[in-house]
Structure formats: structure tokens, C-alpha cells
């Protein structure tokens, strides 16, 4: 099976005053197309750095990152932006919705960048908002929605243009258990229905129990890579 993501000997070090923090320490990882993987570690374990590096938001100090067979760790900012626009969907812990846009406009934003026409944008955004259960809330701005609803908008935005890879950083951190379960069901459904590869960084036990593959990290290294029976 071809690889959606391949990381080879990734290293990334941050400086905090005099101290050096190894966020990624010779980390190698392969994730096949259509994979559903959870990265787990205690806080500061390197999962967000790994996610940002895979998504081209951050550059490793050394090592290689391959997305869909293309090496990206030496790509320019514009090439990385293009990659994120066409192939990767992001779901952030803090939702990162654009506050002045409505739910539907937030969802349509990526398609607008892609140059998708008005009619198609409207149709697709309505469809995906229905999929995530936000019918009737299309015109609400982020400040007028609950955390769970905002996270659903963020998910809708991430998946609306059917990217091959979705990267989600602590997607359930601000959600209650019901909303978290609902979100994970949604991810599973999208994974199964569209074959989208999901990489989720979390330390939420409910999420970990939900995925077929669990990659445990500690101090920037992979300490365990478990294939499990998802709930």
C-alpha cells in the first residue's frame, strides 16, 4: 500500500532560555493511505510539532518528510501553502476559525482560495455542514456558537474539499464527552466513506480508544506503535 505520510529521522530542537528542548528526536514514522492514527504523548511530548512538521507548518532541523510520495521538508513556503491548500485539512485545538466570517463562509474559505466557483462552493459547504450536523447554523459567527459547534465548523472546513490527509491537533480538548464522541464518530465515518487519512494528536483516552492505530510518543521519540481494535 502506498504511503500517505513518511517521516525519516526527524529532529527538531527548540531553545527555551539556556535549555534545549528536543521536540522531535530522530523520529521515523510511516502512515499508509486511508490510515486512522492517533499520536499520543504527555504535554510537551512532540506530537503537535510532528503534526505541524507533517503539515508543512514547521520545518525540521534535519530528516525527511514525504507526503503522498513527495518530499516536502525542503519545499518553499509557497509550495507548502499549495500542498496544504490541495491535500491537507487541519483541525486545530483552538478551532482557529476566522471570527468575522459566518460558519458557512469559514467552510467556503478554503474553496475560495482554491478558486472554486460560487455555486459549487455553496453547494459543497451546505452538504458538509449537513454532514457535521450544523444545519440551521450556517449564518452564525464563531462567537455565536458553542465550542462543539465551532469544532464541527473547523472539521467541515478541513474536509470540505476532500483532502487526502486530515491533521487534527487535540480536536476534543475543549469538548464535553458527548461532543467528543460525536466528533470521533464523524472522523471515523469520513475515514471509512472517503478513505481520508486521519492523524490525530491527543492525550484524550476516549480518542485513543477510538482509533485502530495508536502511536505513543515521549520526548520526541516513538516509544510504542500499537495496532488495536477500535471501539
Amino acid at each position: 500500500m502506498s504511503m500517505a505520510v513518511k517521516c525519516v529521522e526527524l529532529c527538531k530542537t527548540y531553545r527555551q532560555g539556556d535549555a534545549e528542548i528536543k521536540a522531535l528526536d530522530h523520529l521515523s514514522l510511516e502512515i499508509e493511505n486511508g490510515g486512522f492514527v492517533c499520536l499520543s504523548s504527555p504535554s510537551g511530548g512532540g506530537k503537535t510539532t510532528l503534526l505541524n512538521t507533517i503539515g508543512g507548518l514547521d520545518k525540521p532541523d534535519s530528516g525527511e518528510v514525504w507526503i503522498a510520495g513527495k518530499r516536502i521538508d525542503q519545499s518553499s513556503k509557497s509550495e507548502l501553502a499549495e500542498l496544504r491548500l490541495r491535500q491537507i485539512g487541519f483541525v486545530f485545538q483552538a478551532y482557529n476559525l476566522i471570527p468575522v466570517l459566518s460558519a458557512q463562509e469559514n467552510v467556503e474559505f478554503v474553496m475560495q482560495l482554491q478558486g472554486v466557483g460560487d455555486a459549487e462552493r455553496g453547494e459543497k459547504s451546505q452538504e458538509v455542514l449537513k454532514e457535521v450536523g450544523l444545519v440551521g447554523l450556517e449564518n452564525r459567527r464563531p462567537a455565536e456558537m458553542s465550542g462543539g459547534q465551532q469544532q464541527r465548523v473547523a472539521v467541515a472546513r478541513a474536509v470540505v474539499s476532500r483532502p487526502a490527509l486530515v491533521l487534527a491537533d487535540e480536536p476534543t480538548a475543549n469538548l464535553d464527552s458527548k461532543a467528543a464522541d460525536s466528533l470521533m464518530d464523524l472522523f471515523t465515518e469520513l475515514n471509512e466513506r472517503h478513505g481520508t487519512t486521519f492523524i490525530i494528536a491527543t492525550h484524550d483516552q476516549r480518542v485513543m480508544a477510538h482509533v485502530p492505530r495508536l502511536v505513543k510518543m515521549l520526548d520526541g521519540r516513538i516509544v510504542d506503535d500499537i495496532q488495536q481494535q477500535a471501539n
Binding site: L57, R84, L85, R86, N96, I98, F109, V110, L113, Q114
Partner: peptide, 14 residues
């Protein structure tokens, strides 16, 4: 922050 968000979504710096 907003610029960071739109860049993370795929808007090019140029």
C-alpha cells in the same frame, strides 16, 4: 493570528 490561520489553510505569502 488571522494571517497565520489563513496561511495554515493554504494561502500563499505572496
Amino acid at each position: 493570528r488571522e494571517f497565520g490561520i489563513v496561511m495554515s489553510l493554504g494561502m500563499k505569502p505572496g
